[in-house]
Design a protein around this nucleic acid. Structure first.
Length: 830
DNA sequence: AGCACGCCGACT
DNA sequence: GTCGGCGTGCTC
């Protein structure tokens, strides 16, 4: 800020974004020594409240002193260059506005926590203190300890004193001015350090090395280390490459010994040094791959480019296995060559699969990967990499929309229909597809949405001509679409051919597959063993204490679990209500199917993949790896298995509980069911061989199922879009879901009614649904009431409606009688 | 969201 | 009489 040179007397203020859910910025004073360096988007450290020190981001710099209060000084400036670009700040505001939350909340999820500083209280002796007579025995003892340390953390102090509660003593000491407490602030991010060794410079010549080896003749181990070193760095390149050194770890295993290496270091033959390395090892050297598109792919690609000539967004509707990835890669290459950045979004689960490996091979270290299972440090490296221009291209999950890209040429959102692009908890409840589109539009980039089963929203936009539409109806290579059959469970029950929950038809095909060494996928979108336990005598059902839902029986972990709050309890041996031992499981989840399969086919290798078996970082890959290698015959899984995996030997897919998906009480049930069934079916028979899909149902007459069977997306779409239009649901309206919570049912209900009445008054009956009891009445001991707003996009000023809604929510919360009521707003709820 | 201040019950 | 329960209100 060079103006300061001309206006030495001017005081500058910075409005900063704090990581708190308060809907405004806070004004701090810029100390004179930062005036020249401070920039919008830089991080600063400020004191917030009495004893809190937090990282904030500068949102505005100005010269207007606040009228009503004295601004505090910024304590520290962390960046000389903005860490958050202008583009991002704009996006943060847009998200806060659109999704009705605070900018601070957006910042909180956007910025990796590794870029926030942590503060820790430290205790230090007051050097000016000379009133020892004021202290009691314990305090004198503590002060003695403190004399021997520059400072202590709270935890250290507890250890030294040997008591768990030292609050009182600390307070007393502060009161007597014997000690000082202060906040120590430090960056969380730690670069990864590699320990390396290299030959001292004097040995870099050929002759010198030869002499060195000779001189080590008596100590075989040391000689071996040097010879190993020379194997890594050939003699003739020694002088150029020696300075780069070799990983020290290389010598600690195998033939060479650590101690011999250390001796050589001590003797001054080798020297040890440290370098900062990337956490992303480039074990896959980029090989410039020329992507060969098939005729169909080439045509689709051309069409996409033509559409981009006049439209910003294009929807690529490509059936499963049509080879969308190649089209993406080709397009990405073109955009990168043009010097622009590319952002590629994928749902979480798809990111763990082959597609990333494939892209990494093509793009090498130009490509960054942003994943939620990455550690903080790893995320910081990707963030910095983007900022510094090392990554022109990022493949990532929904939160990758927050990366500091400001020169986007293309945003690709693959599997755009995926519900997991929507974040629910915590706020901001954003949809990464929509944020991605906004982000792209703002930067003048083109946006490509891809899916085999586009969301109604996107397809509607395409059908009205707002988005360009490109269809790929052919499977890649010789692959054929699978045959899909419905299995009539009613008929099978009548003819007594069911084995547990498996139809006889499905069993026959599984057996056939086992005999032929082909693989089977069993899909059941419900985890656990059974959704509840039921006493045969008194009809008792195991329920969660805190939520109004039954507890799911988990065989694996031998416990009952609540899928809403995570509560766990032991499995009762006898009925807790009547003492009867006749408790049975009702319904089935993935665990039961797995268990049944093991019993029915003892020699088959059965694996299960659901949330419970993929908790750890690599579990997902391990299970898939086993399956890919052919070490698994039958894979049982939830929707996790429906994404982006293609395996050659899967010739059969069995689908359970399709009916439950279709009849879920929610206006998106049909859409979700169609997408899920189609996606899962797509796992069958990828190359050469035609696959078979068997869908078990109690009602073979359901029109949606027939659309799945005949792979009739258009038929399904036309039917569903009529429904949506008739009942004023998206894409014809925007939906805002409002949940009112309170421990007391009565209070929650009254507050919900109060709010709904206000909304009704203003918006009219057709636009306000509810309040209704939550689908689950009580979660974590709070009663829930739902209100749904349906706001037309064309006839209504949605912005104004949102402002009105916020005002009314504030009004509810500030009312005495509704004290403690909590309201959650979810814009574009899915 | 934190965090301190503040006003009522069970303990040395 | 004190510790400490969590209700309420503020944070530049």
């Amino acid at each position: 800020m060079s103006e300061s040179l001309f206006s030495v007397e001017t005081t500058f203020f910075a409005d900063v974004i704090l990581p708190v859910p308060i809907p405004r910025m806070f004004t701090y004073r810029v100390p004179r020594n930062f005036v020249d360096e401070i920039k919008i988007g830089a991080r600063v450290i400020v004191q917030f409240g009495k004893n809190r020190v937090v990282t904030a981001v500068v949102g505005r710099i100005h010269q207007t002193p606040p009228e009503k209060y004295q601004a505090k000084y910024i304590l520290e400036l962390l960046d000389n260059e903005p860490l958050i670009t202008q583009q991002q700040l704009w996006l943060f505001d847009w998200i806060a506005d659109y999704y009705m939350c605070c900018v601070g909340e957006v910042m909180n999820v956007a910025v990796p926590s590794g870029l926030k500083v942590t503060s820790q209280s430290r205790i230090q002796i007051n050097p000016d203190f000379d009133h020892a007579e004021l202290l009691d025995e314990q305090e004198i003892g503590f002060l003695d300890i403190l004399k021997n340390h520059a400072s202590l953390t709270y935890d250290d102090a507890i250890k030294f004193v040997g008591e768990t509660n030292i609050n009182a003593m600390i307070k007393s000491l502060i009161g007597k001015h014997a000690i000082i407490m202060y906040e120590e602030v430090k960056e969380k991010y730690k670069p990864k350090i590699a320990k390396k060794v290299r030959l001292k410079r004097v040995y870099e010549g050929t002759e010198e090395v030869a002499n060195l080896i000779d001189s080590l003749a008596k100590s075989a181990k040391q000689q071996m280390v040097v010879l190993e070193y020379l194997r890594q760095i050939p003699m003739h390149q020694l002088s150029e490459r020696n300075q780069l050194g070799v990983d020290k770890a290389l010598f600690t295993k195998g033939e060479t010994s650590d101690s011999a290496l250390n001796t050589l270091i001590e003797r001054g033959v080798l020297e040890q040094f440290e370098v900062i390395v990337s956490r992303f090892s480039d074990d896959l050297p980029p090989e410039p791959v020329k992507i060969e598109l098939t005729e169909a792919q080439q045509q689709a690609s051309d069409e996409i480019l033509t559409h981009f000539g006049e439209k910003d967004v294009v929807l690529l509707h490509g059936i499963t296995g049509s080879g969308k990835t190649e089209i993406y890669i080709d397009l990405i290459q073109k955009v990168l060559e043009g010097g622009s950045q590319v952002l590629f979004l994928l749902p979480e689960i798809a990111l763990t699969t082959q597609i990333v490996v494939r892209m990494k091979r093509v793009f090498g270290d130009k490509m960054g990967v942003y994943h939620s299972k990455f550690s903080d440090n790893e995320r910081v490296e990707v963030w910095r990499g983007v900022l510094e221009g090392r990554y022109q291209f990022v493949v990532g999950v929904r939160s990758a929309v927050f990366l500091p890209m400001d020169n986007l040429g293309l945003v690709i959102i693959d599997e755009e229909h995926e519900g997991s692009y929507k974040q629910y908890d915590p706020a901001p409840r954003y949809h990464a597809r929509d944020v991605g589109i906004m982000l792209g539009l703002k930067q003048g980039a083109k946006i490509l949405l891809g899916s085999a089963t586009p969301s109604l929203e996107s397809y509607y936009q395409a059908s009205t001509g707002k988005y360009g539409l490109v269809s790929l109806n052919q499977r890649y290579g010789n692959a054929q679409l699978p045959d899909i059959h419905l299995i009539d469970l009613k008929a099978e029950r009548k003819s007594k051919t069911m084995k547990n929950d498996f139809s006889g038809t499905l069993c026959q095909h599984i057996e056939h597959n086992l005999e032929n060494g082909e693989q089977t996928i069993i899909f059941q979108n419900r985890r656990g063993y059974s959704p509840y336990l039921n006493c045969q005598e008194c009809n008792w059902i195991g329920e969660c204490e805190q939520c109004a839902v039954s507890l799911t029986y988990h065989l694996d972990s031998k416990e009952l679990r609540c899928h809403y709050c995570g509560h766990k309890e032991e499995i009762p041996r006898a009925c807790p209500a009547c003492g009867s031992g006749k408790i049975k499981t009702v319904g089935f989840g993935t665990e039961k199917l797995e268990d049944d399969l093991r019993i029915m086919y003892p020699t088959a290798r059965v694996q299960r993949m659901d949330l419970d078996t993929t908790r750890t970082k690599n579990a997902y890959q391990t299970i898939l790896g086993e399956f890919e290698q052919g070490n698994t015959d039958i894979l049982v899984g939830t929707q996790m298995i429906s994404k982006g995996l293609d395996f050659d030997r899967v010739s059969l897919v069995g689908i359970f509980d399709a009916d439950r998906m279709i009849h879920f009480p929610d206006f998106r049930a049909a859409e979700r069911a169609f997408q899920m069934l189609t996606q899962v079916s797509g796992r069958a028979g990828r190359r050469e061989k035609k696959g078979l899909v068997l869908i078990q149902t109690n009602n073979t007459n359901q029109s949606l199922l027939h659309k799945v069977v005949s792979n009739d997306y258009m038929g399904y779409y036309n039917e569903e879009i009529k429904e949506r239009e008739g009942y004023f649901y998206p894409p014809f309206t925007r939906v805002i879901s409002i949940t009112v919570k309170h421990e007391e049912q009565d209070k929650a209900e009254k507050a919900a009614h109060w709010l709904a009445d206000k909304l009704l008054e203003k918006l009219g009956k057709a636009r306000v649904l509810g309040p209704e009891k939550g689908m689950v009445e009580r979660v974590r001991n709070k009663f829930l009431f739902d209100i749904l707003l349906k706001l037309e996009k064309d006839k209504l000023n949605i912005k104004a409606a949102k402002i009105f809604l916020q005002e009314q929510i504030d009004a509810v919360m500030t009312q005495r009688e509704f004290r403690g009521v909590f309201v959650v707003v979810d814009v574009d709820a899915v």
